[in-house]
């Protein structure tokens, strides 16, 4: 039982970060109907930014959450403006290929500039843990989970309660009508892409003390995020968080009880199943 609880808790904590990564992806999809295949590379960039800013300034990774988030928000604005905007309204294939190209570019460039080494940020946090009953919680993972949940909740409130959020939902619902209502959809798209990218950048900063940083670190996160987004319903923030935790726990249990390397297999089988049986996601209609 202790083993089960430990595995489930670890899965839940990592699942929160999956949820945050997926929230960014699903926000972008919900508002502009773009599946960003370079999303994992933004996570990788967030991790590298944390690593290098930390080396340069000596600041703790958690202090860097804000600057890294802002930096990645800016990167998102730029990418939307320079690239994504040009394929809006074109075929799915054009959109997929553009972001696949961006993903290959960023991954290759990171490998070329920074090399393939695994870099770790030495903090006492990495090994610190607290005992709750029979379960040991890693402090760094606990913090990552907490920040992820708070940010996702913040995004939800932004979408539901603020004018900007209402404008985003309107643009998601119907671009032409939103334009007629005086909503600057170009600005909305830039903000949505910027926020989605900023969130995944923060997720990278949260993971930097936990995982090694290397050029292909984003791939598995991105693939997992696709699964989570489809599971939670495309464009659904709450669904992304719940889906992230479901996948996190499932992976941890499979890794513990079946085999470590079959955890991704289970994730992708769930994915194919969901796509076929319930493409609108477990939780029903999108609710961006």
């Amino acid at each position: 039982m202790a083993i089960f609880l430990q595995a489930a808790t670890n899965g839940l904590l990592l699942g929160g970060v999956y949820g945050l990564v997926s929230a960014g992806l699903t926000l972008i999809f919900g508002v502009m109907r773009i599946v960003n295949f370079a999303h994992g590379e933004f996570l990788m960039l967030g991790m590298f930014a944390t690593y290098w800013l930390g080396r340069a300034s000596g600041l703790h990774p958690y202090v860097l959450l804000v600057p890294v988030g802002v930096l990645m928000f800016g990167v998102g604005l730029l990418v939307q403006r320079a690239l994504i905007d040009r394929v809006l309204g074109r075929t799915d294939e054009a959109q997929i290929l553009l972001t696949v190209g961006l993903s290959a570019f960023l991954q290759g460039a990171a490998l070329f500039v920074w090399g393939a080494d695994y870099r770790t940020i030495p903090t006492p946090l990495a090994s610190a843990s607290v005992a709750v009953g029979p379960v040991y919680l890693s402090v760094a993972r606990l913090v990552a989970f907490g920040v992820a949940v708070v940010l996702a909740a913040g995004l939800y409130v932004l979408l539901v309660r603020t004018d900007l959020g209402r404008a985003m939902r309107a643009a998601a619902e119907n671009r032409e009508v939103a334009l007629l209502l005086g909503i600057d959809t170009g600005r909305i798209y830039r903000l949505a892409f910027g926020i989605g990218t900023g969130l995944v950048g923060v997720a990278g900063a949260l993971m930097a003390p936990v995982l090694a940083t290397f050029p292909t670190v984003g791939t598995l996160f991105a693939l997992t995020a696709f699964v989570v987004v489809v599971l939670g319903g495309m464009g659904d923030i709450v669904g992304a968080m719940i889906g992230g935790m479901i996948i996190g726990v499932t992976e941890a249990l499979i890794a513990t009880y079946v085999a470590l390397d079959l955890a991704p297999l289970a994730t992708f089988l769930i994915f194919l199943l969901i796509l076929l049986v319930r493409p609108q996601g477990l939780l029903g209609k999108g609710r961006v």
Partner: peptide
């Protein structure tokens, strides 16, 4: 490594 991957990504875009 990496330069050729980056270039073909660029080429695709």
């Amino acid at each position: 490594g990496g330069a050729s991957t980056a270039l073909y990504g660029l080429l695709l875009m």
